[in-house]
Nucleic acid binder design. Sequence first.
DNA 1: GTGGTCTAGACCACA
DNA 2: GTGGTCTAGACCACT
Lengths: 131, 131, 131, 131
Amino acid sequence: MLIQIDYHNGVPIYRQVLDQLRQQIVSGQLSEGQQLVSVRDLASELKVNPMTISKAYALLEMEGLVERRRGIGLFVAKVPKQRQSEIKTRIVQQILDRAVSTAIQLGIPQEQFQQLIARLFEKYDRQERQP
Amino acid sequence: MLIQIDYHNGVPIYRQVLDQLRQQIVSGQLSEGQQLVSVRDLASELKVNPMTISKAYALLEMEGLVERRRGIGLFVAKVPKQRQSEIKTRIVQQILDRAVSTAIQLGIPQEQFQQLIARLFEKYDRQERQP
Amino acid sequence: MLIQIDYHNGVPIYRQVLDQLRQQIVSGQLSEGQQLVSVRDLASELKVNPMTISKAYALLEMEGLVERRRGIGLFVAKVPKQRQSEIKTRIVQQILDRAVSTAIQLGIPQEQFQQLIARLFEKYDRQERQP
Amino acid sequence: MLIQIDYHNGVPIYRQVLDQLRQQIVSGQLSEGQQLVSVRDLASELKVNPMTISKAYALLEMEGLVERRRGIGLFVAKVPKQRQSEIKTRIVQQILDRAVSTAIQLGIPQEQFQQLIARLFEKYDRQERQP
DNA sequence: GTGGTCTAGACCACA
DNA sequence: GTGGTCTAGACCACT
């Protein structure tokens, strides 16, 4: 399965689908021209209402990351390398901004902050090698 | 007391109040034994319904960060230094976790990630000196 | 689902709902995965404002006894047998603690105390057989 | 100090004062004709609003356990032995009733219930010997 | 359909 | 004065 849904963390399901697809596109896991799984199939795979998937796909289309070919389906759009990298940076930067401003408000020194990050990178590195 | 509400970002008001008060308590801006602004006063200050504030206060009490003295008001509870620092770390770590896992998924190398952080710290440092 | 509200005993309605649901869950009358009556339905059944029910449900969720499935409803969560029995014991012990400490302060001997209990158990046994 | 107030358990302070005085009277710790501490003194001793003590005293008077002698103060009333014992039993029975009915609803067998009680009696016995 | 949030205004117990 | 509870009704996001 390509998408992981957490049904209990409060993040809307369509948002989880949207975010993960966006990431897969800009990171190249889904490549240009590749067809997306149909709304119906993905919905039944995730045991989720088709409307939910449909909403995620529509938003993805509005972002220009995906193209609709009528009667056929949705395909990953051509995204210029530069735009890809912009999106990537933007995604991370948005989250980081909150983290840093919070840390400063809490008086957590930059060194401790960097340590937390190093630990998290280790954690994910381990997971990647043996998921 | 300074609380900033963004009425249009979708985050429930009571949550914004709750989060900011929690931060002020664990960061020491609100100190032990200090009385919180009354529900009615804070509500009128923020131009918000008293129940909204009440809800935030109730959750804060359930977290044990605040104590009710019946008929008098709410006061910042004694929070052991260790618990304070646990909460602080937890708050930051929650946000950071998302940032790091996203960065990894996007293939952003740790070096670039650290650069982004350094830049953000600079930005907030500047703001602090001359807000 | 059977919930009895006493509108005049001073105990908040949301508390009565909360306590009774909690008991029904840990006693197994509501079983894992079962869907709770919707906020609106229970509210109209008890002739009470939906927010009152909502509050009880929210607290039940915070206790981890119930899970939200967004847009669908609330369901009884998986509660490990051990946790169930802890909660049960805690509920009874809280009440008993007061009873025993009071009895001791009043100089009521343990024998008389046990007699009172035996009589009460008889009374409820009778009721159960022919309510 | 003769009265212990718990400021954080939600029980109204006047009620804690009332209950404890009632118990002290029917258990003979306060004997017939003995003068109660003045409202003012007890209030300052407990660091509590005098109105709170006053309310407890007034309710005690309504129960007939205490007599007001105008200009002098309040005195423990003559309470016939039988009435004393009735009150004692009633106090304990009220609390026990809830405990037993709850235990039955939760399916806690009488044996386990008795064990809980035995344990509690031990606990309080220990405390009495070395408080 | 579901639950979550918020409002305006009321009443209550407590101190 | 304090906070707690409740109502009636509204709007929202999610499924």
